[in-house]
């Protein structure tokens, strides 16, 4: 099993953190994992992104040329990565922020108004967790339980309320 996931959006939307949350869950599930952020000029063009690989074998390149899952949190990111997604892959996009449909018909798509859902549930900045939750519906992803367990494990005691909130948002995304 090898899953290649790209999280992309504007700086500040928490795409790096969403990727890190998944990477931690993979580590706790004893999978091989890598997390690679973009740190170049694309950060300024609205497509800040990170590449997460989950695998049961040692990971070769941490660079993803053809993701199995794309999590797009703004329009430039969808436009940049849509064609790279592997046939049969999954695109999760925030339909509240992206007024565009996926043009391909050989991939699965989840349209989810993540920012709106986050706002309605008490914290507008946690759209990233909603998106992560939605991506867990993919058949080869880590289970919702494992991700929630890992969020609890890796959030400092002093910020336990935040862990609860993150878990809530991930679950809302998963159940959408």
């Amino acid at each position: 099993m090898i899953q290649k996931i790209i999280f992309a959006g504007f700086g500040g939307q928490g795409v790096l953190f969403a990727g890190k949350t998944l990477a931690y869950a993979g580590m706790d599930e004893e999978l091989q994992i890598s997390w690679l952020p973009s740190y170049g000029p694309e950060m300024r063009g609205g497509t800040a992104n990170c590449s997460v690989i989950l695998s049961d074998e040692p990971i070769g390149s941490p660079v993803i040329t053809s993701p199995d899952i794309l999590i797009a949190m703004n329009k430039p990111s969808l436009e940049k990565f849509e064609n790279a997604v592997a046939p049969g892959g999954l695109i999760v996009l925030d339909s509240f922020l992206i007024d565009k449909k996926v043009e391909r018909d050989d991939v699965d798509v989840i349209y989810i108004p993540a920012k709106q859902l986050a706002e309605e549930n008490g914290n507008a900045t946690l759209g990233n967790m909603i998106m992560l939750g939605a991506s867990l519906k993919h058949k080869d992803m880590i289970s919702l339980e494992a991700v929630c367990r890992s969020v609890e494990e890796h959030t400092p005691q002093s910020r336990a309320a935040l862990a609860e909130l993150n878990k809530k948002m991930i679950t809302i995304g998963y159940q959408y």
Binding site: A23, M27, I33, S34, W35, L36, Y39
Partner: peptide
Amino acid sequence: DGMLGQMMEP
């Protein structure tokens, strides 16, 4: 290299 420096692994 830049990739090794920036990437996270266990």
